[in-house]
């Protein structure tokens, strides 16, 4: 018998120091608060700026996160709405986003499905190769793209963006969607085929509903990518009536070296807030263990 076994039994409580739990909790909350503030501050700054008068904004002594001098004003939004083409920019952005989302879904979802179901290492490698395309910077690509846009007769039309944006949304979303399809068990697709559907029917009835979080993610990312794209929009669209928000407001609200900061921030906030809401709305669906219980275990 070993020496340890001869001793009377004692649990090892040194590993569960008192207060350890509370301390861990505290650190966790501190970290959470730090990162929330870190993420929220620029956003708050933007929103405060929207309602500030010039004298408040341009005094370097003033705190950005409260109204110091002069009362909050809606003048900046009025300026944005009435004296620029902002409503048109918004409308263009919405049209372009919707069309790009549709094109992206139509291509990326079937592509991702076939790549995940492609047996062997081919599918995986092809997926990575497709993702690499996304990494080529638009500052290089816009030169050849200009030719393409010209040939298609879409110069100076917002539909040039509808044609060009899928070149980066499709690779990114294909790769994203592959991750989701990989987590869908093959079994349920085959089960649907046993239960009486063709392969396409099985995908439609069993695979896509389970992949809904992935499809929502693709939509949100495509919208976000479309909203913040700048280089192509700048290169292909010059007339104000065809511009999206990203290039429209910067050309109209930066006049020489005069920045209309409050109106610029208003333009950004009006776009950012719906996107932020969209994210939070679907967050549960993204995170929820959506394949739990599909297979045993």
């Amino acid at each position: 018998m070993s020496a340890a076994a001869a001793q009377p039994y004692e649990p090892d409580i040194s590993s569960t120091k008192r207060g350890g739990k509370a301390a861990r909790r505290g650190v966790l909350y501190l970290a959470a608060i730090f990162f929330s503030v870190f993420a929220a501050l620029p956003f708050a700054w933007m929103v405060f700026t929207v309602f500030k008068s010039n004298q408040d904004l341009y005094n370097g002594q003033n705190v950005p996160f409260r109204f110091n001098e002069g009362s909050p004003t809606l003048d900046n939004i009025r300026l944005l709405w009435n004296q620029t083409n902002y409503p048109t920019f918004l409308q263009n952005t919405v049209v372009v986003s919707i069309l790009v989302v549709i094109i992206t879904l139509l291509v990326a979802v079937p592509a991702a499905y076939s790549l995940t179901r492609l047996v062997g290492r081919w599918g995986e490698n092809l997926g990575i190769a497709i993702f690499l395309v996304y990494l080529i910077p638009p500052t290089l690509l816009f030169i050849p793209m200009t030719r393409v846009v010209a040939v298609l007769g879409l110069k100076n039309s917002m539909f040039s963006m509808v044609v060009v944006y899928p070149t980066f949304t499709i690779p990114f979303c294909t790769w994203l969607m592959m991750g989701f399809f990989k987590s869908v068990p093959w079994d349920i697709e085959e089960q649907a085929m046993i239960d009486g559907y063709s392969r396409v029917g099985a995908i439609w009835r069993a695979v896509l509903p389970v992949s809904l979080p992935g499809i929502l993610t693709v939509i949100v990312f495509t919208v976000a990518l479309t909203l913040h794209e700048f280089v192509y929009a700048l290169a292909f669209v010059t007339s104000s009536s065809e511009k999206p928000v990203s290039t429209g407001v910067t050309t109209e609200l930066i006049r020489g070296d005069v920045f209309f900061w409050q109106s610029l921030m208003a333009a950004a906030a009006i776009v950012a807030i719906p996107v932020a809401l969209l994210y939070t709305l679907f967050l549960d669906r993204f995170v929820a263990g959506f394949t739990l219980g599909a297979v045993k275990g």
């Binding site: 349920i188 089960q191 085929m193 509903p209 389970v210 809904l212 739990l292 219980g293 599909a294």
Partner: peptide, 20 residues
């Protein structure tokens, strides 16, 4: 013939229930 034409029922090792 594809599975749907064979008039069979199958229970998978994993049960393969539709999670949604």
């Amino acid at each position: 013939l594809p599975p749907r034409a064979r008039r069979i029922a199958m229970v998978f090792q994993s049960y393969a229930l539709y999670p949604h």
